[in-house]
Design a binder for these strands. Structure first.
Length: 376
DNA sequence: CCGTCCCGCCATCGA
DNA sequence: TCGATGGCGGGACGG
């Protein structure tokens, strides 16, 4: 009786479910824009989960990774304290030192040099076991920690910080981070499992612009490049965002990251300053709304009743087809936004909203392209 | 078919 | 013991 999900019983339903909207990367971006505001010092996991409309489990992932970079710090059960982006440089420095100290050399992974397996391990010098030691021993207990997402994240970063390699692929990283002085017997399998985690980490990291996904020059294989703390304010698109915030902001200013995919996309969607978003006009509003409803349908209507429906207009019955609500195609995002604005209290959520607009756009394009012919 | 990686079961940890 | 954490990998999604 686990038919709780009951996603739907209509295979061809017009509910479009996009995997991207559920990605850790996006979630992280939202998380960040939600808490990266003036006075936020305490973050409750439940609160975050509700606000972001995701299950608790996901919050743990995000939080663990962010903590690895110094943005957060665990305060107590269910409570994390916000350190801010300003804490990143420091954390990075420590990671680098730590990494160098531990001899974090990648055995020239990737696909050149070195023939076949050549893991030098005969010694025992490479124990890795993290730098922050509490007291030697306790391997049994720390065994778990040893495989934690957080530690993996740190090691992944060390890889960039300590090697001269500019591009690192995940497979490569997984290989290097096997971090087991143990036998190399069938750790391939282990590596495969670890790669999955690395995908998660990479997504989150790139949502913060600490790294960037980019196809390898020759081999089309995707890899990641380290951007570092300056990955942001570098050229960060002109369109000055906020005119205020004399605060220590310097890193996470631009919330419009979300670089996934190297596809053109462009459109530095700055909905705030952008009056009208150019989108395909092939579709008629009716369709849009119809699908729009379904978009946030996925959230389970659990008891808690977190009222997160980003776009739940007063009238959102369902697929009813009560599309009597008319909205001008373009330039109405503004009014649309202002319509919902009241729902949100702080402006962090406004930004959050912006991300959804973007998500919508990509989704919209997709749908439009599909139905393009349909509409004369 | 394969690279990604979301979902959520359930082992562990901590009070 | 019970609730909070968070490994872990099956298998869905998207190209």
């Amino acid at each position: 009786m686990s038919s709780f999900v009951s996603r739907e019983n209509d295979p061809k339903a017009q509910y479009f479910y996009s995997r991207k909207e559920k990605s850790l990367g996006l979630l992280c971006t939202n998380f960040l824009s939600l808490y990266d505001r003036q006075d936020v010092e305490s973050i409750g996991l439940d609160d975050a989960a509700n606000r972001l409309g995701v299950e608790r489990r996901r919050i743990y992932d995000i939080v663990n990774i962010l903590e690895s970079v110094g943005i957060l710090a665990r305060k107590a059960k269910n409570q994390y304290s916000w350190k801010g982006f300003g804490a990143i440089p420091r954390a990075l420095e420590e990671l680098k030192e730590e990494g160098l100290r531990e001899n974090f050399n990648i055995s020239d992974c990737c696909n050149f040099v070195k023939s076949l397996d050549d893991i030098e391990e005969g010694g025992s010098s490479n124990s890795k076991s993290d730098g922050q030691d509490r007291s030697s021993g306790l391997s049994k207990n720390d065994n778990r920690r040893e495989k934690s997402l957080g530690l993996l994240t740190q090691n992944f970063i060390k890889l960039f910080l300590c090697s001269d390699a500019d591009l690192i692929s995940l497979d490569c990283a997984a290989m290097a981070l096997l971090g087991d002085g143990h036998n190399s017997t069938a750790m391939r399998n282990n590596s495969a499992a670890k790669v999955r985690r690395l995908y998660d980490i990479a997504n989150v990291l790139s949502s913060m612009n600490l790294i960037e996904k980019t196809p390898h020059p020759e081999s089309r294989k995707p890899a990641f490049r380290w951007l570092g703390v300056k990955g942001k304010l570098k050229n960060a698109s002109a369109t000055a965002m906020d005119v205020q915030q004399p605060k220590k902001r310097e890193f996470g200013t631009d919330v419009t990251n979300y670089s996934l995919k190297r596809n053109k996309a462009d459109s530095s969607t700055d909905w705030k300053s952008n009056q009208n978003i150019n989108m395909p006009l092939h579709m008629k509003p009716g369709d849009l709304e119809n699908n729009g409803d379904g978009l946030e349908q996925n959230s389970k209507h659990s008891s808690k009743g977190f009222v997160f429906g980003p776009f739940t207009p007063a009238s959102a019955p369902g697929v009813g087809g009560s599309a009597n609500k008319i909205m001008k195609p373009t330039q109405d995002w503004e009014s649309l936004a202002s319509t919902f604005r009241p729902q949100y209290r702080n402006q962090a959520l406004s930004d959050l909203f912006g991300h959804y607009v973007e998500a919508w756009k990509s989704w919209y394009v997709e749908v439009a392209g599909k139905k393009q012919m349909n509409s004369r």
